[in-house]
């Protein structure tokens, strides 16, 4: 037992956790390569590695595959970070951008824009919007998601960041936006209604380099903040009173955290649509791998989020090739299976 508690063995345990994170970073990088390779048109990996790409290959690689892979990494990482922080701060393993109503609010904003701010139904006939209206839809969706976040933030503020109240207000807020979406869908024409439905399918194909930049603009500083605040978040794991005794103001920390991850998930959802379960599954997998210590848990959640979304995106391209299934459908399908498996395993 003396050995079990020696500094050497403790150092090894920490080193092992870093090693695990490094392994999964490697897997995330492999998933980027696989994502660039896979699709109806295959780009050989040695062409990518040597940079010896034909014109067609270069166009597809730069403008489609790499863009999608990088978006999946940043968006998956961002959704996982949001879920991890929400689960931490709200002390609820089911907390995610969906639980706090952010996804539903983003869907309402997009539906509102498609139905009321688009002058012609013909421009959205196929479900894809023109560039101008696509930007309008993103902005409208983001504003709506921020309104929802502000509401949850307000409740968190007046109720001192009380976890259960925050979650219940998030669920209520989500239900409200969902009913509002159905309300405006009911009174619009079929084309616009189907366009709103199409938007709710989370899809990485909606991305562009400017969208990727916008998500990264939120992702990097927010990730940096939480990585540096990992010890404070560790104090928060024990509840408000012990956190205070450890020198952390739990209310302030909870409110700042909810605000930041709400903004991050609002940015991702408003651009890509509703991508469920990544924010729920990735933190659970990370917790099973390295435990709850946020110094390891947060980075690994982000890496798992990137891996999960990237592989789901690859699957969405090959499962019914040449047709591409929206990635939100894939993540929800296998997300449910993994979640049930985890719950059963935990019970056992």
């Amino acid at each position: 037992m003396e050995y079990a508690l020696s500094n050497k063995s403790l150092g090894k345990k920490n080193a092992f956790k870093f090693f695990l994170i490094a392994i999964f970073v490697g897997i995330a990088l492999i998933s980027i390569f696989l994502s660039c390779y896979n699709g109806t048109f295959k780009i050989p990996i040695w062409h990518m590695l040597s940079g010896n790409l034909s014109e067609n290959e270069k166009y597809i690689f730069v403008n489609i595959r790499l863009l999608k892979a990088l978006t999946a990494v940043v968006a998956g990482g961002g959704l996982a970070l949001s879920g991890a922080i929400m689960q931490n701060v709200l002390k609820n393993p089911m907390a995610s951008p969906f639980t706090l109503g952010i996804s539903q609010a983003a869907a309402f904003g997009a539906s509102f824009s498609i139905i009321f701010l688009n002058p012609e139904s013909s421009s959205i006939y196929t479900g894809y919007l023109g560039a101008k209206y696509f930007s309008l839809t993103i902005i409208s969706s983001f504003i709506s998601a921020l309104i929802s976040s502000a509401f949850v933030f307000f409740v968190a503020y007046i109720k001192n960041g009380e976890p259960q109240t925050v979650i219940l207000s998030g669920i209520a807020c989500g239900a409200f936006f969902q009913s509002m979406t159905m309300f405006i869908q009911y009174f619009t024409d079929e084309i616009k209604a189907s366009a709103t439905l199409f938007w709710t399918f989370g899809d990485i194909s909606k991305t562009s380099y400017s969208s990727l930049l916008a998500i990264t603009f939120f992702f990097i500083p927010i990730t940096a903040y939480f990585l540096f605040s990992a010890l404070k978040l560790n104090a928060l794991l024990w509840g408000r009173e012990i956190a205070f005794s450890l020198g952390v103001k739990a209310k302030k920390m909870a409110i700042i955290s909810i605000f930041l991850v709400s903004a991050l998930s609002a940015a991702i959802t408003s651009i890509l649509g509703v991508i469920g379960f990544v924010g729920l599954i990735a933190p659970h997998l990370a917790k099973m791998t390295v435990g709850h210590d946020n110094r390891y848990f947060i980075p690994l959640s982000i890496v798992f989020g990137a891996i999960v979304l990237n592989f789901s995106d690859i699957l969405s391209r090959v499962i019914l090739a040449p047709a591409i299934v929206p990635v939100g459908i894939i993540t929800s399908m296998w997300g449910v299976i993994v979640l049930i498996y985890l719950l059963i395993k935990k019970e056992q």
Binding site: N234, L237, L246, G247, K287, G291, H292
Partner: peptide, 15 residues
Amino acid sequence: PSLTVYESVLFGRIP
């Protein structure tokens, strides 16, 4: 939280 006894005691050192 999902932490070991060792981690739990260690986190008392956070300040």
